[in-house]
Design a protein around this nucleic acid. Structure first.
Lengths: 343, 343
DNA sequence: CTGAAAGCGCTTACAG
DNA sequence: CTGAAAGCGCTTACAG
């Protein structure tokens, strides 16, 4: 394998200094167009690429962002939440579009994650992507702040206002899902998913849910809210609990699609028809949602936009520009599980 | 923000030379245990992290791998094949376990991808992950080879033997799916998915399918093979074509789960019961498979193992150790769509 | 066991 | 417009 070409090799062939090569390749106006083209031609020929380690060392920035996926350690069996996949896709694209590279890693594997990337100059900033429970990371976030690390987290607004967070408007999502069901004539609601602040996304969805109920003059019955985590099994169990308690309801709003799908299975087993007896709406619009039986009406998060805003905000933060916590609106995808006409 | 600490700052505080600091932090046996601990304590206190750009520049390797997702440009709407997500997860984990970082990018966005990472010393090697059709990349692969880039591709064995490929044994997958259906008494088979070498994974699944049929003394009817790409819509359409041609069959093997799900929809629309009239087996075991109606029997690829082997092989290649193209065995996940007893 | 020194390949003031 | 030179922060022979 021929040794990799350096700017000195090019300088030698072009008969100029190494500084000129560097300038030409960076399109500096200080170098004459002819010289620049000649140098570029030689660079192409030698398959030259600027050594990022050297240029990053010199300029003290890496043009790289790091994405940390903070997952529940429960589902480590290579089962990533499909919502994250979608986010990963849009973040990857947004990062590339901005001319940055993206390092990806999982939180579990690096005890020392809070410092790993930016402190070692491998990344200029960090995106934290996790579902819900950032409480566990509280201390680590503090440390990140203390170290002046540039980072942005996905999710609900954080208690600490200095933490920049970008997330979908979960309250609004809860509202539109509930309003839709109310509009279809439903009156007795159940909600599956955590309502504690330990799970801020779910809590906000529940808050939106309650807000819409109150606005419509409907009862909020705390007994019809059952905690659940975002798995099919948990949704199944939560719905069973609800039925075992003898609760009567004609509408069910689940804090995630997986919960909704598990709940539908439990309802069906008890001979309860969806949507005839109970209308169901989920949250996330994961790919499975459209294949559920009946196809699931759900609140969709705009992951495309979310990824772009995450990356853009982080970049602004890195550049010292003004940034602010943002909420991204959600939209309802109507399918059959809610009892509306749609296919 | 306090300037980042360097090894010189530590040396100053510890009253030793910078060389000694570097040695201590790298656990060199050349430095006395007491000195080492003292230096490490100071490093911790100052929140010091080795500057990767500097160390990589010096050692000329990056301890980073790059993952290039080569997707069909058709589904760029942040819709990544869930199979890739699973692979991404296991590759990320395997990479971290080996002490490497992982850069992720999508092929579409970087015209010049073949050279981007390794040539700029940002990565020591590249993993190419794509579904099927590497023909489009043929030239780029040649270039990678010519440049002596370290890379490994996911998928079927490549014509060019110098290309290191790791993939699941698609022929064997086709065999076990078909044998299972034969064991259930099915006799007339249809196959949905490309059979040309343009789509090597699908072709191999088809070859395995035919192999099993022949071994059982059953007919291989080319008219019952319809091309399809890995989408629900394509599967739906392919099944419709099959029916329109008046083909009779009691078993259907689809080259992917999405194709199978689309096909089931088409069959149902024609009043054909699955699995009673036609038993169906898919391929991939994507999350949707277990939620399909009926739940889909499918061939599962061991993504966990695959990710590990990809990473390990690439690392061996980088280190100049011996490596060889490998096939990973597949397994059948039996659900209801094939007509076997399982739930 | 430790230190002084070279050098990885760039970028960018500084001097013409 | 161009070149000579410094320096980014490390690692590692070399010399003790």
């Amino acid at each position: 394998m021929a040794a990799k070409a350096t700017s000195i090799d090019i300088a030698y062939r072009a008969g100029v200094s190494q500084s000129t090569v560097s300038r030409a390749l960076r399109n500096s106006p200080l170098v004459s167009p002819e010289t620049r083209e000649r140098i570029k031609a030689i660079a192409r020929e030698l398959n030259y690429k600027v050594d990022k380690n050297a240029s990053n060392l010199r300029t003290q920035n890496s043009h790289t962002l790091a994405l940390l996926l903070c997952e529940d350690p429960t589902n480590d069996d290579s089962l990533i939440n499909p919502f994250f996949l979608s986010m990963l896709g849009s973040i990857t694209r947004a990062t590339a579009r901005q001319g940055y590279d993206l390092l990806v890693s999982f939180q579990q594997l690096s005890e020392d994650w809070h410092a790993d990337y930016e402190d070692s100059n491998k990344a200029d900033g960090i995106i934290l992507l996790g579902y819900g429970d950032y409480m566990d990371y509280e201390q680590k976030l503090e440390k990140l702040l203390a170290q002046n690390t540039h980072f942005v987290i996905w999710g609900a607004e954080h208690n600490n206002k200095s933490v920049l967070s970008i997330g979908c408007d979960n309250v609004q999502g809860g509202v539109i899902a509930t309003e839709h069901l109310i509009g279809l004539g439903r009156k007795e609601f159940a909600f599956l998913g955590g309502a504690s602040s330990h799970c801020p996304e779910f809590r906000d969805r529940y808050l939106g849910h309650c807000k819409a109920l109150k606005a419509a003059g409907l009862v909020v019955d705390k007994r019809r809210q059952i905690d659940a985590i975002s798995t099919e099994a948990s949704g199944y169990e939560a719905a069973q609990q609800l039925l075992k308690k003898g609760m009567v309801f004609d509408a069910l709003f689940a804090a995630s699609d997986l919960i909704a799908i598990g709940a539908i299975r439990a309802l069906k087993e008890q001979g309860i028809a969806v949507p005839e007896d109970v209308a169901v709406v989920g949250y996330d619009d994961i790919p499975v949602a459209s294949f559920a039986n009946p196809p699931l009406t759900t609140v969709k998060q705009n992951t495309q936009l979310a990824g772009e805003i995450l990356v853009e905000s982080l970049l602004r933060l890195i550049l010292g520009k003004e940034v602010s916590t943002q909420l991204i609106p959600t939209s309802l995808v109507v399918r059959r599980s809610c009892g509306a006409g749609a296919a």
